[in-house]
Nucleic acid binder design. Structure first.
Lengths: 143, 143
DNA sequence: CTAATCCCGACAAAAAGACTCGGGTATTGT
DNA sequence: ACAATACCCGAGTCTTTTTGTCGGGATTAG
């Protein structure tokens, strides 16, 4: 029951972007140094975030990344799902696989537990917004 | 964010034991056949369940396993934690590791999210009892 | 005694995870 | 124009975890 390092780093990196929201683009190099994460690994994570529409990039010198909407509008769940794909506690809940949970016919009672688990995990991750992760007083956050 | 196959198989196997609760010991071979799980893999899972006090074993011919308490007293969370160890969504929450979450000093706001996630996962898994997983009318369950 | 069963540790194959490497392309400051 | 700074992309590699397998030893019913 582990989150991947990608998800963890993704959240931390996005928190940095939230901190510098509206301060111009932030380079991956800066994030990598501040958070002590491999630059090359970050480069692998950020395309996922961009494809999910959470950030947009500025290319070229002095370029970098910035949030595409305010930190109060981005959920931790958005970030985790962007880099990890949909939450699927067990294989039978993946939309691609479609393999049966147990080989029991009819409704599988165990499956319902896993569905409940999946929903709750999504709920928790969607309760927390990026704005809550940065150490600023509410007044300091640029809306 | 995946549960291991061990956890999944463990729950299914325990559901079988719940079904035959008070019907004498059930052999691993029988469980393996009914649930289509490798016998040798089950042999690896059951010591964990026994060490957690969820089942007790009867050795020798005609032996097998039986629940050590009623299905209404065993939570899915008990089973999952028995075979997977404690739920730790990120490495910094493991009691052995003790590595810092981010390298930020003081209280890490991100850590609180992971703690909340961990607690909620445990909550969900502890809400469901083994008795709810077997397809018997309430009257048919032996107390 | 024999067959069934739990028990244990080592081993192995496969998959996933966590990066690394080597370039390519766009943009900007000088 | 040119070099420096970044993003961009795909392949490759190393490590760890997962998912088993294998062989045999201990225990008990019949």
């Amino acid at each position: 029951m582990r989150l991947s390092a990608k998800a963890e780093y993704g959240v931390r990196a996005m928190a940095v972007l939230a901190f510098y929201y509206r301060g111009g683009p932030v380079s991956l190099r800066a994030i990598a140094e501040q958070e002590e994460i491999s630059l090359k690994f970050l480069e692998q994570i950020f395309p996922d975030l961009r494809r999910a529409g959470l950030i947009h990039s500025v290319r070229g010198s002095r370029g970098g990344y910035m949030l595409s909407r305010s930190p109060g509008n981005i959920k931790v769940g958005d970030i985790v799902r962007a880099v990890e794909g949909p939450i699927t506690p067990v294989s039978c809940l993946s939309e691609s696989g479609e393999e049966p949970c147990c080989h029991r016919k009819g409704d599988c009672l165990t499956r319902q537990v896993w569905e409940k688990l999946r929903d709750r995990i999504n709920d928790v991750l969607d309760e927390v917004f990026l704005s809550e992760l940065i150490d600023l007083k509410p007044a300091e956050i640029l809306k």
